[in-house]
Computed example of a mutant assay.
Amino acid sequence: MAFQSMEEIMQQCKNKQISFAEAIIQDDCQDRNVTSEETRARMYQIWDAMLLASATYEKNLHSKSGLVGGDGGKMEKYCMEQESLCGSFMGSVITQALQMGESNACMKRIVAAPTAGSCGVLPAVLIPYFKSSGCSIDLILDALFVSAGIGQVIAERAFISGAAGGCQAEVGSASAMAAGAMAAVKGGSPDQISHAAAIALKNMLGLVCDPVAGLVEVPCVKRNVAGAVNAMASADMALAGIKSAIPADQVIDAMREVGEKMDVSLRETGRGGLANTPIGQKEAKHIRSLEVH
């Protein structure tokens, strides 16, 4: 993909009178010299992998470290037995985010969107919507193209790696992608999609990457939940006509600035933040002892 900014995508939509998704599809076709049918077929494979990852979640499976596992099952049971404070749909979003994040920690097959550590955010909003709304697969594929376009711009202007820019670059980027995707499935305009992404990313600015024992488990899995819920709220705000005071491209640039100023101990090294708490250090020592034996 060749887009360097969200503004460029929106201008393309305006000039050609096409949707945000179609702008990304056309760009991908030109970039990879493939047909629209071929690029949609490839995106369908990604969607199918997300569905499979959801369907094959195992509530009794725990990560090798023992830090995560089973919470997705607990949340699912809770939502089935009583009305969650967030409501049934949001309960499904939370459940899906937990389950996908745990599957990643347990080395099951997931879709990096945009990274493995943030793999739970996008499917957490799209899969429950697909199952509850009865919408077409084509609509979901369009949403995935929207999310891909947003992710590509973020990667071009800033970063999507926790080691480079903290968790704001991973879960934050995933949340922006998911917010734009959900705005798209609800018929949002390119402008609303951009505002949804901007609002979501703004809400995640400064989020550090501080994994306990250096593993993509704690607090990563539960941060996927935060990213998914944030995406839903951001999409709804944008669809209501609420705009981000700071344009999306400038929010992305700000995220890069914050990430570059972030101390190295807070960028996936497992040396600061939650990883440096007494319990975090205790868990890391325990896990190291397991590796020795």
Rank of each mutant, 00 (worst) to 15 (best):
V218D: 02
G151I: 11
D236F: 13
A228N: 09
V208L: 07
A181D: 10
G227E: 07
A174L: 01
V185Q: 12
V212H: 03
M177W: 05
G149T: 07
L141V: 14
G151L: 09
I193N: 04
V212G: 05
D236H: 14
S194A: 15
S234E: 06
E217L: 08
A233Y: 08
V221H: 08
S147T: 10
S175V: 00
I154N: 07
P190G: 06
P190D: 07
I150A: 02
R157D: 13
A148Q: 13
M204L: 06
A158R: 09
L205P: 03
A198H: 03
G151K: 06
A228Q: 10
S175L: 01
K186L: 12
A196D: 09
G188E: 13
I199Q: 07
A213I: 06
A163C: 05
I199Y: 03
G180Y: 05
A164T: 11
A235M: 06
S161D: 14
I199W: 05
C209Y: 03
A184Q: 12
A155M: 13
L207C: 08
L141T: 10
L207Y: 02
Q168P: 08
G166I: 00
A163F: 10
E156N: 15
I199M: 14
A179T: 02
N203F: 00
A183P: 11
D142C: 08
A184D: 09
R157T: 10
G151Y: 09
K186A: 07
V225E: 03
I150R: 02
L144S: 09
E217C: 06
A179R: 01
A226E: 13
N230G: 01
A228R: 10
P219K: 04
P219E: 07
M237E: 10
P211G: 13
P211C: 10
L141C: 08
G227C: 11
M237T: 01
A197G: 05
C209M: 06
Q192H: 09
K186M: 11
S147Y: 07
I154H: 10
P190Y: 05
A231K: 04
V221K: 05
V185P: 11
A158C: 11
A213L: 02
L207K: 02
Q168A: 03
M182C: 13
L144A: 10
S234F: 04
G166H: 01
A231N: 06
A231W: 04
I140M: 12
Q152P: 00
S194V: 09
M232F: 10
V208K: 14
G188N: 13
S161H: 12
A183Q: 10
E217V: 07
C209I: 03
F159T: 15
A233Q: 08
A197F: 04
A184L: 00
S147L: 01
I150W: 03
Q168E: 14
A197N: 02
A174D: 04
A158H: 09
R223Y: 04
M237F: 14
N224D: 13
P211V: 12
G206T: 07
A176Q: 02
A148N: 13
A181I: 06
M232E: 11
E170T: 06
L205H: 05
I154M: 13
A176S: 14
G187M: 12
A169S: 15
N224P: 12
I199L: 15
P219G: 05
S173M: 01
I154V: 15
V208F: 00
L201A: 00
